[in-house]
Design a protein around this nucleic acid. Structure first.
Length: 320
DNA sequence: TAGGCCATCTGGTCCT
DNA sequence: AGGACCAGATGGCCTA
């Protein structure tokens, strides 16, 4: 039923194949030769007015003979055909780019932090996607907790400062050293804060950029909070990953996993799309609250979570 | 105002 | 020949 990546290779290959994303887009510089440039200009329009379509010798009798196909005169008829072709090509190119952007939007939606109000740039979306694959592969292969600081670190690797802040804000990890220290204390230094000392991510303290923040997309939040393979089946006694929010201080909506994820019983499709009301944990049917993901004090859905995402959430919720 | 990001136009190249 | 894809150029918009 479920298909898994092979141990090692596949995901790593995929991730490494995207390693150019770490660079700053300067890998293929426009080393256009002067010949090519002059060739560009040789195609300029509007030099001739007559209507005949004879081929012309570009160099006349004096210069060296040019090889290759002779260049045709740019007659008005040709100009019009060329123009029409160009317009069609432009339209195709436009729709192609729209398709590409749609695909990129779809990718944004499955990223661990998605907001309709604050879109990740294209390059940041690709970088985050690569990191996400990388981080999830680490979860699969090494059983690393999705709540660990290392997980967030992997997600943020190579991202710009604002995007790192966004991701950290969505996961409510790392904005302040205080929180990390708190985590470390609770977990006995295991499972979180792998590199707290020399933290490569410099989240600005006291906190995050001004709103609007992105929000953690609901279905992925569930994956991340609930999915802990293989550690989920064999939880380490030292692991501090029961789903209990390690930080219970004041939270700034709509940032936090623990504070922004309200459970609502069986919402109708109409009401499920927006404005989820607060629903205290502990009143969940069927023992759902015993699942690690429901052990936080309260949950709310991010405000801009889509209906499809909420359906995923509902299915998951009912399974529990 | 500089810099980042984006959409669009454009010409080149490759493929069918 | 025409379409798909690519990369460079350009101008607009936004933000620090």
């Amino acid at each position: 039923m479920t298909k898994h990546f092979g141990k090692g290779g596949d995901v790593s290959e995929l991730v490494s194949s995207l390693s150019w994303l770490e660079e700053d887009g300067s890998s293929q510089d426009g080393d256009e030769s002067p010949e090519m440039r002059s060739h560009h200009h040789s195609l300029t329009l509007g030099e001739e007015d007559d209507d005949d379509e004879e081929e012309v010798e570009p160099n006349g009798d004096n210069g060296p003979k040019r090889r290759g196909p002779k260049k045709k005169k740019m007659t008005k008829a040709r100009q019009e055909r060329f123009r029409a072709r160009r317009i069609k090509a432009n339209a195709r190119e436009r729709s192609r780019m729209h398709g590409l952007n749609n695909a990129l939007d779809n990718l944004r939606r499955v990223m661990p932090c998605y907001s309709k109000t604050q879109k990740l740039s294209k390059i940041e979306t690709l970088r985050l996607a690569r990191n996400y694959i990388w981080a999830l592969s680490e979860v699969l292969e090494n059983g690393q907790s999705t709540e660990s600081h290392g997980f967030v670190e992997m997600l943020c690797k190579g991202l710009s400062q604002p995007t790192s802040n966004l991701v950290a804000g969505c996961l409510q990890l790392g904005p302040t050293p205080l929180i990390l220290n708190n985590l470390e204390d609770k977990c006995g230094g295991q499972g979180v804060g792998d590199s707290v000392g020399g933290h490569p991510l410099s989240y600005p303290s006291p906190g995050l950029p001004s709103p609007p923040y992105g929000s953690l997309e609901a279905s992925h939040l569930l994956h991340m909070k609930g999915f802990k393979a293989p550690a989920f089946d064999n939880p380490s006694p030292n692991e501090c990953s029961s789903g209990t929010p390690p930080y219970d201080g004041p939270l700034t909506p709509p940032l936090s996993i623990s504070s922004n994820f309200a459970l609502k019983q069986e919402p109708s499709p109409h009401e499920s799309e927006r404005n989820y009301t607060h629903h205290p944990a502990g009143s969940l049917p069927g023992g759902a609250q015993s699942h690690p993901i429901f052990q936080a004090s309260r949950y709310e859905l991010p405000l801009d979570v889509s209906f499809e995402n909420f359906q995923h959430f509902k299915i998951f919720y009912l399974k529990c």
